[in-house]
């Protein structure tokens, strides 16, 4: 039980710190690196990587849990003929519980994966409506499908990555940070709760509460998610 709670709490923390990343103006690669590292740390996966379409339909690895060339190569093979590119083209999750059973046209990927000790793979499209921009790939040493919670989390990570990337692209064009933020993350649970706390304790609106939290975080050089967590667990109070 406590293990599950810890994992969920850490997932939340990650989402909250991602929200923080988006607030402060961010480097998209840092964001994606955080995502794959988090996948490896919290999900039942051995290695993780994110690939993005370069605009010509080619997929490139932009972040992976190891920079080891063999892993990057393997992922790249998957992007030529394998679960990765299939997920990208169909816009669907491709779950391969047993890499040894994959079709002949994926043979290069299959052999390389087996050689590196991977037994199964889970590829999640990074998709905004009809637009697939890349995939999140989770490679595992164990046979079988990811469990449901991890699948949901992987899906959420892929979505965050998508949002983060699309933001960065549109930010260059519009620079409307404040407005962009509103739809940025759907999982800022702790921050939303903290807004409620401050709205009540300080008698302000939810929007004003967010400004207070953000202002406090900035003036104390803390992450906004950190401030939010302390407001929610009541170790920090704005009402004196």
């Amino acid at each position: 039980m406590s293990e599950i709670i810890t994992k969920e709490a850490r997932l939340l923390q990650t989402f909250a710190s991602l929200a923080d990343t988006l607030v402060d103006g961010y480097d998209v690669v840092d964001l994606l690196q955080l995502l794959v590292d988090t996948c490896q740390e919290l999900l039942d996966t051995t290695a993780a990587a994110i690939l993005l379409s370069d605009g010509n339909g080619e997929l490139d690895v932009v972040a992976s849990t190891s920079e080891a060339s063999r892993l990057v190569e393997l992922i790249q093979l998957s992007a030529e003929a394998g679960p990765c590119v299939q997920s990208y083209r169909t816009g669907e999750v491709v779950s391969v519980p047993d890499i040894a059973q994959t079709p002949e046209e994926w043979s290069r990927f299959r052999e390389s994966a087996l050689e590196l000790g991977f037994a199964s793979v889970h590829a999640v499209p990074m998709r905004l409506r009809d637009n697939t921009i890349g995939t999140l790939n989770l490679l595992r040493e164990q046979l079988g499908d990811l469990d449901e919670q991890d699948r949901i989390a992987a899906r959420a990570f892929a979505d965050v990555a998508t949002i983060g990337i699309l933001h960065e692209r549109s930010l260059r064009e519009t620079a409307l940070l404040a407005e962009q933020l509103q739809g940025a993350l759907t999982s800022r649970i702790v921050i939303e709760q903290a807004k409620g706390v401050v709205a009540y304790t300080n008698g302000v609106t939810i929007e004003e509460a967010f400004d207070l939290i953000r202002g406090y975080a900035r003036s104390h050089q803390l992450g906004i998610s950190q401030v939010a967590a302390r407001l929610v667990d009541r170790t920090l109070r704005f009402d004196g």
Binding site: T186, R188, E192, Q193, A194, G196, V197, A199, Y200, R234
Partner: peptide, 23 residues
């Protein structure tokens, strides 16, 4: 949906402050 979840999370924050409860 994401929007209504946010509202519920925000309300959760208000209630936890009103009653001094965990989220």
């Amino acid at each position: 949906n994401a929007y209504s979840r946010r509202i519920v999370h925000q309300a959760t924050g208000m209630v936890l402050a009103q009653l001094d409860l965990s989220p």
